[in-house]
Structure formats: structure tokens, C-alpha cells
Design a protein around this nucleic acid. Structure first.
Length: 350
DNA sequence: AATACGGGGAC
DNA sequence: GTCCCAGTATT
């Protein structure tokens, strides 16, 4: 893919805009503060970047504050039990991130003396740190002059070059075009471009009149910047169906168990369910008792839609093994993903 | 090159 | 309802 815009990306204009309009975020060092030679803590930047993978700033903030309060340094996180990390990550989604986060903290402590590598190449060897995150940390923490290409930049550059194909078919070309533009203030530039994408060149609306790179933007000149990026058509989500079983004992405690360590919701806590398939089939109750149907929970994952029939019962706790009984007041602290919080709420244990 | 992998915020 | 978000690992 050849990018034909004759106007190079104007990094100076972007930085000038950023100096006046940078977002104030808990993991960020302001451009004014950076000019006083202050750089952010790589641990905090890494933690924020992992949390922000496919996740909005709004959703991340309270998790970031909680994690840094519980575990202020990478050694603290490395020393924590994985279960504790999963409990705190519950609700944020993409739970492989939490498992990799913990493994990464331990790798930094064990293999790097508690100090994060200071290059993108070194960072990318760590668990859960890929092309984007390694570049972001290297630029933001160490001003490595490297292209930091995330979903925001995909959109900004697709518009700037009026990219006629889906971004995934021109990733290398976009990275190359961006790389050439990276200035000495690489960290501020990376954050500036992401702020630009989040606030000016937004997905549904582009506020071109206030955009610092509007003069070179081909999509703006064409008159319909929101037309870009070109989207590949998305496949229809299949539906899976099943049953979920909420058991309480005489004292009102709820039966919980752990999911397998990998795969969907890996390592997280659940109530027993049937297999999930195209047909729910008849419920096979995990214990005998007077089961009551409590309606349905619908939950949409990235690649399928799940419809669970909810059943509840009061049982005596003998014939169950492998799990544990949790007091209702303790449910908030369990590693329950949103799906199973919805299931418990539907069963009256919310 | 495709696919698996969550959840919620903003409209 | 829809869109899509500071992506990575696996196949």
C-alpha cells in the first residue's frame, strides 16, 4: 500500500496542541512536568497500558487507582497471589491480561532485578507486552523514537491518508509513515496523537476545525472524514445456550468454583453451568432439591452471544466438591466476572 | 492471516 | 440497539 499524501505529519503542530490540551490522567506526567525532565514510572505506565488494551480510559481509571493503592511497586504485584490479582481485575475483561500481568511482574523482578527494560525490543519479550504496548512504554518512559500505533492512530492516519482499504491491510505502511514523523519528544508525541484521536478525531465525529493536522488531512479535504477508516464487514455472532445453577445452603452461602486456568474467563470464579451449545438441552442439576427457574441472563461476548437459563435451590452442602461456599457479603470480593455477577443477581443473590 | 478473548461507555 | 475502545497470543 502506497500512501500518497504529500504533506508529512506535522509533529510540531501536534506537540504545540498537546502542550495546551493534554488530558490529565493518573498515570501520566504532564508535558509541562516532562519539560522539567520528569518521566513517568515505568511500572505505572506498563500497568495502565495493559489495562487500556481494548478498554476505555473511563473504565480503567478506578482499577488503576485500586491496583496502585494495593501494589505500589512491581515487587508488590509480583509477590501477590494470582487469585488476588484476578479478584481485583474482575469486571475489566480479557482476563488473560491479568494472568500475563502477574507473570510479567514476576519476570521483571526475577529476570530484570525489578527494573523494566528500557527499549521496545526488550519490553516486547515480556508476557502480555506486544508491539503496541512495548512501543508505548519505550516512548512514554524513555523517549525512544518509535511509532506507537494503537486504535486511535489507526483512525487518525486512515483519515489523514484517506486510506482506501481496511487498516489491517496497510498496517506496515501506516507504521512507516508514522515512524518518519516521530520527533525528539517521542513520549509526548505518542500521547498527543492518542489524545488527538480520543478527543478530536473521534470515531463518530471529527472536529476538523480545531485539529492541528487538518491542513494535511486528505479525508477532510474530501469532505467526509468519518468515512474512514474503511471497516471490514463483521461476521454474525452465533448464539450459545445453557443453564446456570445457583445453590445456597441453609445459612444462605452460595456455592462457587474456579474455571479452568486458560480460555474463556480463565481462572475466574463461577457458579456451575451446563455446557454452552446451540441448544440448551434439559438442565442436569448438580444436586437434588426443589429447583426454581429464575428466568434468563443474556450476555454478549466478543465472538458469541450467550443465553443462560437460571436455576436456584437451597441444598445441604454434602455432595459437592471442588468448590467453596461464599457468604453473600463476600461475593463482592470474589473473582466473579460480569457474566456471573449477572447470574447471581438474577437468582436473587445480587 | 484468522481467530479467541470481555465489558462498558457513548451515542 | 450499535460501535469500538492506548491489543496480545495462539493457531
Amino acid at each position: 500500500m502506497l500512501l500518497t499524501n504529500p504533506h508529512p505529519l506535522d509533529a510540531e503542530a501536534v506537540l504545540e496542541w498537546y502542550d495546551r490540551h493534554a488530558r490529565d490522567l493518573p498515570w501520566r506526567v504532564s508535558p509541562q512536568n516532562r519539560k522539567a525532565r520528569n518521566r513517568p514510572d515505568p511500572y505505572r505506565v506498563w500497568l495502565s497500558e495493559v489495562m487500556l488494551q481494548q478498554t476505555t480510559v473511563a473504565a480503567v481509571q478506578k482499577y488503576f487507582l485500586r491496583f496502585t493503592s494495593l501494589w505500589p511497586r512491581v515487587e508488590d504485584l509480583a509477590a501477590a497471589p494470582l487469585d488476588a490479582v484476578l479478584r481485583e481485575w474482575a469486571g475489566l475483561g480479557y482476563y488473560a491480561r491479568a494472568r500475563n500481568l502477574h507473570a510479567c511482574a514476576q519476570a521483571v523482578v526475577r529476570d530484570h532485578g525489578g527494573v523494566f527494560p528500557d527499549t521496545a525490543a526488550g519490553l516486547q519479550t515480556l508476557p502480555g507486552v506486544g508491539a503496541y504496548t512495548s512501543a508505548a512504554i519505550a516512548a512514554i518512559c524513555f523517549d525512544e523514537r518509535i511509532a506507537v500505533l494503537d486504535g486511535n492512530l489507526d483512525r487518525v492516519l486512515a483519515r489523514y491518508y484517506a486510506l482506501p482499504v481496511p487498516v489491517r491491510d496497510a498496517k506496515d505502511a501506516l507504521r512507516g509513515a508514522l515512524q518518519i514523523a516521530v520527533p525528539e519528544r517521542a513520549g509526548d508525541f505518542a500521547q498527543a496523537m492518542m489524545d488527538l484521536g480520543a478527543t478530536i478525531c473521534a470515531p463518530r465525529t471529527a472536529y476538523c476545525l480545531v485539529c492541528p493536522i487538518q491542513p494535511g488531512c486528505v479525508a477532510t479535504r474530501e469532505g467526509a472524514p468519518e468515512r474512514y477508516p474503511i471497516k471490514p464487514e463483521k461476521a454474525e455472532k452465533p448464539v450459545r445456550r445453557g443453564h446456570a445453577f445457583v445453590m445456597t445452603d441453609a445459612s444462605g452461602d452460595v456455592y462457587l468454583q474456579s474455571r479452568p486456568g486458560k480460555g474463556l474467563l480463565g481462572g475466574m470464579t463461577e457458579v456451575p453451568t451446563s455446557i454452552w451449545a446451540e441448544d440448551a438441552g434439559e438442565p442436569i442439576y448438580p444436586a437434588t432439591g426443589e429447583w426454581r427457574h429464575r428466568g434468563q441472563v443474556v450476555h454478549v461476548f466478543t465472538h458469541f452471544r450467550l443465553e443462560l437459563e437460571i436455576w436456584s435451590v437451597t441444598v445441604s452442602p454434602e455432595a459437592l466438591d471442588g468448590g467453596w461456599w461464599s457468604e453473600p457479603a463476600a461475593l463482592k470480593g470474589e473473582a466473579l466476572p460480569t457474566l456471573f455477577r449477572k447470574v447471581l443477581a438474577q437468582a436473587g443473590m445480587g
